[in-house]
């Protein structure tokens, strides 16, 4: 029983981790909370839905399609709403981010209507495997494996590619990186694309798992994932993974204890506590006040 709940927690947590990675990467580079990130996650879920429903593709192709679409969306959003404000006050950038977030969710609502829809049941045949006393469904297995695979891929990109090196340099010192000949605009676009792709994958997986896709699924998932990113230490990639998993397990624990109506409050409660006690999170770098 305990292990099964833990497994449920990890399944949900791994999707939070996928979304949280996008927040943390963008924040690490341009110190902006990408409020529209949750909406990109939602669009990813819808693209996956459209692909499975109209083209009858399997889960993996749906995830790939959603990732590609959202990469583009992420780049466009950055280009239109964030780039012109990069040199202005943080307040303006934040307001613009909020504007984009409302725009995307209300636009989707306009097109699809406010009600939630389901993935077709044929997407995944839900066989349940039994290992010893633990039951795990095929879907859960896929969720955990896909998330883990994507996170490993991300680590490889960030650690061993030229672009990854440029990303790390930019997040350490924005101005110095640009003086060293790094094309900052390209790095930022790349970061947005990477983060959005991960969120889209999360969107498809969550959409299938909870069997509900709606235009406003992004806002609460986005805020929760942000809480996970802060918990792990914003700007830190392993931190986001850790934070996501922790949050997932904490929520499932609350449900197991019979407090399911308070699950949404847990993320915000954790967020509040972390910000008060250790704003840099578990693995974050300490921030300095500059004059």
């Amino acid at each position: 029983m305990f292990f099964e709940q833990l497994l449920n927690g990890i399944t949900v947590g791994s999707t939070y981790a996928l979304i949280a990675l996008g927040y943390t990467m963008v924040y690490g580079i341009i110190t902006l909370i990408n409020f529209a990130h949750g909406e990109i996650f939602m669009v990813g879920a819808f693209v996956g839905l459209a692909l499975t429903r109209f083209l009858n593709v399997n889960v993996f192709l749906a995830i790939l399609g959603a990732m590609a679409t959202c990469m583009l969306l992420g780049i466009v959003v950055e280009r239109i709403a964030y780039r012109p404000l990069r040199r202005s006050s943080r307040l303006s950038a934040l307001i613009s981010a909020i504007g984009v977030s409302i725009f995307i969710s209300t636009l989707v609502q306009l097109i699809r209507g406010p009600q939630t829809t389901n993935y077709p049941a044929s997407v995944i045949n839900n066989t349940v495997y039994t290992i010893g006393s633990i039951h795990i469904s095929k879907l859960q297995l896929i969720m955990i494996l896909v998330s883990a695979g994507l996170m490993i891929a991300l680590q490889l990109i960030v650690k061993y590619t030229k672009m990854g090196k440029a990303m790390r340099a930019t997040s350490q010192d924005y101005d110095a990186a640009s003086l060293m000949g790094i094309n900052i605009n390209q790095v930022i676009s790349f970061t947005f694309a990477l983060g959005s792709a991960l969120a889209a994958a999360g969107g498809v997986l969550v959409g299938i798992y909870f069997n509900a896709v709606g235009p406003f699924m992004g806002t609460s998932a986005g805020l929760k994932a942000f809480a996970a990113a802060v918990l792990g230490g914003i700007g830190s990639i392993p931190g986001a993974m850790l934070g996501g998993l922790f949050l997932g397990v904490a929520e499932i624990t609350a449900i197991a204890l019979g407090k399911s109506s308070y699950t949404d409050a847990i993320a915000f409660g954790i967020l509040f506590l972390v910000l008060l006690i250790k704003p840099t999170g578990i693995l974050g770098r300490p921030l300095q006040k500059k004059v």
Partner: peptide, 23 residues
């Protein structure tokens, strides 16, 4: 407690608090 935070951290903390109240 929250006003020790600044900018976007404060924004998220207060947003989270408003959601907690609603819940």
């Amino acid at each position: 407690p929250a006003l020790r935070l600044r900018d976007d951290y404060l924004a998220i903390a207060t947003l989270g608090f408003a959601e907690i109240i609603r819940i």
